[in-house]
């Protein structure tokens, strides 16, 4: 549905080189540390910046040479970028006004969108009287008004507080399911990416490192960078290979009578170095013969306690 083919763009910090395909109706997150080229990817797709080589194809149409206005894309900026001199309704209806939609139809459509975004009756409000979450929803409504084939969201929740962010995340998923629209979503938050996406594209230094479903990304990371970026982990040598262990895959038990029987292949003696209370459990950092280990456990151990660490599964890193 949307294909980036051998996209190239040179920047002072790095060279962008990207192949990416998103299916119709998919919600794809672009995840990566700051400066990895996430926002740049969106800006290239939207046409705000031109590419050096490659093709951008949307719904079978090559849009590489088209200006932003010709690409039928909705774009939501990181800090909303609502027009400060227009009311909420004028902002939402802006794209329709450009398309000379007749006023009565435009009003109906704007009301409909405000209803959809859970902002009924907000039309006459001034933009600067809105809260961050409200602005964000207006910005999304403005982008949706022109029925874009693709919605690009650039870190849309980065300036919104934690609780509201969760609601808005759900909102995006609901919208995307309801409207069946294709969404490309930039974030630097792994929780955000893992929780709402159909697939996640992990970028690093302008390159695609892994493109997979959240579960696969978490369980079968392509390399140590991806593994570390999408969750807590320890790296353990095992039979000549490298294992990635998530903290929940490691369980702890005290050393005592009968402990020797537990000492199987996938276990090691470990000493508690430090701990963090996370609410649902403690996160322990342990020292062992295999190196440093991370584990969750709901029981409380003191630093210095000697324990047995046992792991159940673990994912193997491909040897490079």
């Amino acid at each position: 549905m949307i294909r980036l083919e051998r996209l190239r763009k040179a920047y002072p910090e790095f060279d962008m080189e990207l192949d990416l395909a998103v299916e119709a109706g998919e919600l794809v997150s672009v995840l990566g540390p700051s400066g990895s080229g996430k926002t740049t990817t969106l800006r290239l797709i939207a046409g705000f910046e031109s590419i050096d080589a490659g093709r951008i194809v949307i719904n079978g149409e090559d849009v590489t040479r088209l200006p932003p206005a010709g690409r039928h894309i909705g774009y939501v900026f990181q800090d909303y970028t609502l027009f400060p001199h227009m009311s909420v309704a004028q902002n939402v209806g802006y794209g329709l006004r450009i398309r000379r939609v007749e006023p009565a139809r435009m009003r109906r459509r704007v009301d409909e969108l405000l209803e959809l975004m859970d902002l009924p009756g907000y039309g006459r409000r001034r933009v600067d009287t809105l809260s961050g979450g409200e602005r964000q929803r207006v910005a999304i409504a403005r982008a949706l008004a022109v029925d874009p084939v693709l919605l690009l969201l650039d870190e849309p929740f980065s300036s919104i507080d934690e609780v509201l962010r969760r609601d808005l995340r759900r909102e995006i998923v609901r919208l995307q399911r309801e409207l069946g629209i294709t969404v490309l979503f930039v974030t630097h938050s792994r929780q955000e990416a893992l929780s709402i996406s159909d697939r996640v594209a992990v970028l690093r230094q302008g390159r695609l490192v892994q493109y997979a479903s959240p579960v696969e990304l978490y369980r079968r990371p392509a390399d140590e960078f991806v593994a570390g970026f999408v969750g807590e982990m320890s790296v353990v040598p095992h039979e000549g290979r490298t294992l990635i262990l998530r903290p929940e895959q490691v369980s702890l038990s005290p050393v005592g009578p009968g402990a020797g029987e537990v000492l199987a292949e996938s276990s090691v003696e470990a000493t508690v170095q430090s701990r963090q209370f996370l609410g649902f459990a403690w996160l322990y950092e342990l020292d062992s013969a295999l190196g440093s280990l991370l584990a969750y456990d709901s029981r409380r151990y003191e630093p210095g306690a000697e324990l047995i660490a046992v792991w159940s599964a673990g994912s193997e890193l491909p040897n490079e």
Binding site: F48, G74, Y75, F83, I98, A143
Partner: peptide, 22 residues
């Protein structure tokens, strides 16, 4: 902010309209 212009362009705005309306 340059992004006001980008937001308008992504919604289909042309140069003259951009100047007059934004």
């Amino acid at each position: 902010d340059r992004r006001f212009a980008e937001a308008a362009e992504s919604l289909g705005e042309r140069p003259l309209g951009l100047f007059l309306r934004v």
